[in-house]
Design a protein around this nucleic acid. Sequence first.
DNA 1: AAAACTGATCAAAGCGCTTTGGAAAACCAC
DNA 2: GTGGTTTTCCAAAGCGCTTTGATCAGTTTT
Lengths: 341, 341
Amino acid sequence: MNLKELSDFLKLSPTTVSRAINGYPEVSEATRKRVVEAAEANNYHPSHLASGLAKGKAMAIGHVIPLSKHMVMNPHFSDFISGAGDVYCKAGYDMLIRVVAEGEEESVYKKLAKDGRVDGVIVHGPSNYDARIEALQDIGIPFVVHGRTNQDESTYNWVDVNNVRAFKRATNYLLDLGHRDIAFINGFEFMNFAMRRRSGYEEALHEASIEINPEIMFTGEMTEPQGYESMKQLLKRAKPPTAILLSSILPSMGAMRAVQEAGLTVGKDVSIVTFDDQLSFLQNSGDIPMFTSVRSSIRDAGVRVAEILLDQINQPKADPYHELWEAELVLGKSTGRPVSV
Amino acid sequence: MNLKELSDFLKLSPTTVSRAINGYPEVSEATRKRVVEAAEANNYHPSHLASGLAKGKAMAIGHVIPLSKHMVMNPHFSDFISGAGDVYCKAGYDMLIRVVAEGEEESVYKKLAKDGRVDGVIVHGPSNYDARIEALQDIGIPFVVHGRTNQDESTYNWVDVNNVRAFKRATNYLLDLGHRDIAFINGFEFMNFAMRRRSGYEEALHEASIEINPEIMFTGEMTEPQGYESMKQLLKRAKPPTAILLSSILPSMGAMRAVQEAGLTVGKDVSIVTFDDQLSFLQNSGDIPMFTSVRSSIRDAGVRVAEILLDQINQPKADPYHELWEAELVLGKSTGRPVSV
DNA sequence: AAAACTGATCAAAGCGCTTTGGAAAACCAC
DNA sequence: GTGGTTTTCCAAAGCGCTTTGATCAGTTTT
């Protein structure tokens, strides 16, 4: 059943029926009621394609998700997406996802923006210099970046965590406890957030006049095995570091496994501080959390980014909008004073 | 730039331009080349909405993802989706995701199917009796179920793992090692896969004439904390079970943490067999995997489910299609003979 | 009672594309 | 050069909706 049929059935014009359903004021309450009931009864649903075409809005938001070399979908996405998806759903928008091999993102974003299928897009995982930003600005489609780049921040919308401050604080906390050998297991540093985290770590060490030791700094895909393998490397050293900073709960689980396997105790022999995205399936909670962490919910970020994007779509002339979030430092069981030698 | 403008520019009719771009044979190679080049040069992208409307196909597949009570997105989705998304992308389809509060799924599926926005849908996480199946059959939209229900299996498309057999094998393996007290930490048993896993476990115990003990059987959301808490319960018992069966790597990580925290060793004091979906971010691999497991890739399932759906969309008259996969039993470090009393 | 206004409805054009049913041009054989 | 085929292109209708501008009754104003 389509609009025409429904309006024939009701002996009304398509105009009136359309307006009745979309809540326009030009139609009397009596007929509106009649129309809505008939639509319900006949199981009529307006075609999204047709209405989208007619009003030039697609009522959908695009996400492009790059798969890494090993076709791995970063698990942090699922929480981000569940936050964003919830916002879209409530606003009547759909989420359009394109999974794409690493490297092709830019062209996929362009196509997505051009073919009129979405009204705005989210940029995930910006690198230090990210060509997508200028590409999207050229096209003129609204977009929000989750994170930032090293490009001019003032020209686009973004929501980011203060990664420098977070990791500086985490490092300082370990320094205050008396640690001097602090390892760092980071994500890939071409990703902007990872680069900023490293800056925070290095700043803190600098200020404490501790030399930076590249031998105890790792980068890689933030997975459980990454944490495990890196930690194993560290424990092999003549003088293993007494504290480790990690970029996500996932590698932290792996690091913990390596520590326990070596017969050592986390929080005593080795202190761990992790960034905690509050992944819903790996929650670091309880009376005293398992890990000491700098914490910021990636799901909340998804919510906020989505809200901002919808706002920008409805007010296309608005100025670029930013939010910089501070992570909280949460004390858990994984840190303590270093065992004195 | 739209079709009309491009065709004016080329001094051709929209018909010819459209055909040239879509690769129809009625247009000479010379003009096709001219058209394609002009399209490129003018950065012309056909409107997806308009073409979808005109040909009655949306070129998109719908996924409805229920959030659990705590707004948690099951992390297993992300791997499934990355597999499916890859297939869609290669076939020129988009993935449309609606995140929806638990319980509203049926109506959301209906709306999605009706409003012409997608050409087919995937049914995730079927329960034992799932109303979505009949709803979708009524509507007549192609769909594929990831998993099965207890309804008549022959009437719809599905891809499933032989969960009964997998868990029976896993249990038998533990029995063969000499274990007699085997606990089971399962997912929610209103989910069909979890129910079938339980059947497999119980069948094996029955055949070995071992009584089923509900006190050492848990169900819940399959997360790290679930495994941790359940395991802690088990270790508190006067005579803790010597082996545990778990439904996913996530709770297994938690169980392992509890075991290690209690000063015991996995694979010696406590044997663990888990179902391994081969989650990309928690891989159970290496020379000898961390966990003994029954293994089946959920990403591969996503790929296959997507392929089948696209096939069904292209041949709507085809018979329902099913695939039942056998999980492999992979030996890892987490199992051994029980410590003799 | 004519004029002005208001509220409820409608006809028709348009969104940007595909596709049907020709028509025109080019080619072929005889 | 006539009739028949192919090849290449086009005009126009249609997909299902929204929206502009107009109509028409009913109400109020002068």
